[in-house]
Amino acid sequence: MTITYSCIANGRTVLAELALTGGSYQEATAKVLRLVLLRAEPRTIMQMGSYIYHTLFIDGITYLCATDNALDTVAPSAFLKKMKYNKNQSDCMISTMRSQVTDVKTVLTQNIEIILEKEEKSNIYLDSTDDLQTPVEEFPKTRKISRRISWKHFKKILIITVAILLSILIILLSTNVIPT
Rank of each mutant, 00 (worst) to 15 (best):
I3S: 05
I3K: 07
T4K: 14
C7Q: 03
A9Q: 05
A16Y: 15
E17A: 15
E17L: 10
G22T: 08
G22R: 14
S24K: 08
Q26A: 14
Q26W: 10
K31H: 05
R34V: 00
R39L: 09
R39V: 00
R39Q: 11
R39G: 11
E41W: 02
E41K: 08
E41N: 09
E41D: 12
M48H: 14
S50H: 12
T55L: 06
L56D: 12
L56A: 10
I58N: 06
D59A: 04
D59F: 13
G60F: 02
Y63C: 10
C65M: 04
A66P: 00
A66M: 05
N69I: 07
D72T: 08
D72S: 07
V74W: 03
K81C: 05
M83P: 02
K84T: 06
N86L: 06
C92L: 11
C92I: 05
S95I: 07
S95M: 10
R98K: 11
S99Q: 15
Q100P: 02
K105M: 12
T106D: 15
L108E: 08
I114D: 12
I114P: 02
K118G: 09
E120K: 13
L126N: 11
Q133G: 13
E138T: 04
F139D: 06
F139Y: 06
T142W: 00
R143F: 04
R143G: 02
K144Q: 10
I145Q: 15
S146T: 09
I149M: 10
S150Q: 09
W151Y: 13
F154D: 10
L158C: 09
T161M: 05
V162R: 15
L166D: 14
I171G: 07
T175P: 01
T175N: 15
N176F: 14
N176C: 08
V177N: 06
P179E: 15
P179T: 14
